[in-house]
Design a protein around this nucleic acid. Structure first.
Lengths: 336, 336
DNA sequence: CGGCACTCTGGAAACGTTTCCAGAGAAGTT
DNA sequence: AACTTCTCTGGAAACGTTTCCAGAGTGCCG
């Protein structure tokens, strides 16, 4: 700031002039001129120290390469940037332990809030989040009882929609390729599949689940090979529900290897409604979980919190909805 | 820090003890114990103010949704995180003007360095970067003459590799779907295509270029429709080079609409070697520009600079290399 | 014309670190 | 035993801002 004393006024006045609060016209003009002349812009660190605000929020996920998280990141950035906030990208690491470390590190106050989407959650993490010195919003499962702000989606219900759709187009022998069961999404989607296929209204003949090692195309391919090789007595599978668009693509590739046509011989559904699924051939029927919407909602929640602490923890639920595309088209049309 | 005076020692000693520099064992133990008891972790802002280091680097691109940039981001994070650095994601905005603003905003010192990959560059931007108060590394074209650290790749040569490959597998009528010419990559790739197809060694019959509005699948689809509709007298195109994997996917979709089989009727190459191209059906022959490598190199460059200013500007070039996959396979094998 | 309210300005403190400096004590050397 | 060297500690300054507080000047009202 000493530089801006070129205007011949005090630091206090300089600060006021640059913020336009309680300074005279002439003062403002003078300081602005001096600042422009020197190409001065106020130091973010000094400002943060004084204001106890970093104007930064962190977004932490296990794998930033996953398109779902990229969509969230984009949405978060869009929401907070106009408020002068920056986004810091962090990695939760693979285990829940490193996630806890991350939350604890918030104590050093390098961000004003955190949006985190943990693959796995345990009591220690919940406790750490509750103790956190800055607002934390969890994207994933609802943590209402724990008193933590969260943005969730009913992916179990979403899976139900996929199953219902397949039944509706006449598929009866439905396989399920899920990811690891010890993850939050894996567990929820298994619940959804089991519920949908054991419901009284379920009109399918046969169902079976195969578990992929993670939520990638390669794992989906391997799992689908195993699943399709099983070939139940009731007859070959005529549909596969995948827990994820990437897994679904793996399934389609496995079908190709066996000479099966999608969707004629095998209808396939994904989940997350990602760009990659939209442009794939055949384009993927997928359950949208509103990734961008969830990102936006979480960002808004964090912003509200740093503004001032509204008392009760808030929950926002984004409804899943099915988007039908070529991979479950009833008559094979332009789907090559 | 006053909290850690619970140990009954001075601030100075506390700081030393926590950093393990020049403090006695007993002092260290005592302070560590007190710190652990209070769950204290040093304030990042105070520390930054004093040390004139934020331990943050920014990564700025036009569109963080682009898989290439995601790969770079991941690589950058991997390199800098072990050094205690955080990554701030920023948007350059669509125009070169907003990019200049971004670079200027570095004056407020919220970050120790910037990695930027601008779609377009002009003199004002070069000048702003040269004046920047913190190290800036440009990913894109080489800025050696301008005295700016940069990580580049010879995408023109990469395009040449794609053309050479197509000629080698016997394709003679080659179309080119490029993105906007006023972007750095668009211009370079056009140069590459023109050079490759006008070279004495070029054995093709006919070439033609169609320009997409941007580097997306939708734009590639539209451009490919136009291109393939042109159908030169020499005979229909038997290969298309796309400036980008996303454009290439658009081309394949357009081919599908016309009932053309890829690669039998039409061989297609992309560029960037993205995940989406790898898992697509048919998997995409693509020129890798080493996105992750470029990210890593840029991160290392920035880290070196903040360490201490090595004098001359440095240039790192990552060689392009072709990865052949199904979309140009000579005999249609397992390609579905 | 005196007092009061109001607007504007400058001084100073505070935010939480790190590091320079000096001093105290211990240990080693002649 | 005296001096030097070394290790360790505490005081204090500095980083750059914002904001509280008090004071100065001006205008308005009685």
């Amino acid at each position: 700031m000493q530089v801006a004393e070129r205007a011949g006024v005090s630091l206090a006045s300089t600060s006021r002039a640059l913020h336009g609060t309680g300074a005279s016209r002439t003062m403002v003009d003078r300081v602005r001129a001096a600042a422009a002349e020197l190409g001065y812009s106020p130091d973010a660190i000094g400002r943060s120290l004084r204001m106890k605000r970093t104007f930064q929020v962190a977004f932490a996920v296990a794998d930033i390469g996953n398109p779902v998280y990229v969509e969230m990141l984009t949405a978060i950035h869009e929401v907070v940037a106009p408020h002068g906030y920056r986004v810091v990208v962090m990695s939760t690491g693979p285990t829940v332990g490193t996630t806890v470390d991350l939350v604890r590190s918030l104590g050093s106050g390098f961000v004003d809030g955190l949006i985190v989407s943990p693959l796995r959650t345990d009591d220690a993490l919940v406790e750490a989040i509750r103790q956190a010195p800055v607002p934390v919003v969890v994207i994933g499962r609802s943590l209402e009882k724990q008193g933590i702000d969260s943005v969730s989606t009913d992916s179990a219900a979403g899976l139900g929609q996929a199953v219902a759709h397949l039944v509706e187009i006449g598929r009866r022998r439905i396989g399920f390729v899920n990811g690891p069961l010890d993850t939050t999404p894996g567990a929820a989607r298994q619940r959804g599949f089991d519920a949908a296929t054991s419901a009284a209204a379920f009109a399918g003949d046969h169902t079976e689940t195969e578990r992929a090692d993670d939520f990638t195309v390669a794992a989906g391919l391997a799992a689908a090979r195993r699943l399709l090789a099983r070939d139940p007595e009731a007859g070959p599978f005529d549909a596969v529900v995948a827990a994820n668009d990437l897994l679904a693509i793996g399934v389609i590739r496995a079908a190709g290897e066996l000479g099966l046509s999608v969707p004629r011989d095998l209808a396939v559904t994904g989940m997350d409604d990602t760009e990659i699924g939209r442009v794939f051939q055949p384009s993927l029927t997928s359950v949208s979980l509103g990734s961008a919407d969830r990102g936006r909602a979480a960002a808004q929640l964090v912003l509200d919190r740093v503004g001032d602490a509204v008392e009760p923890a808030r929950q926002i639920a984004i409804g899943p909805h099915l988007v039908v595309r070529e991979s479950t088209a009833t008559q094979e049309k332009s789907a090559r």
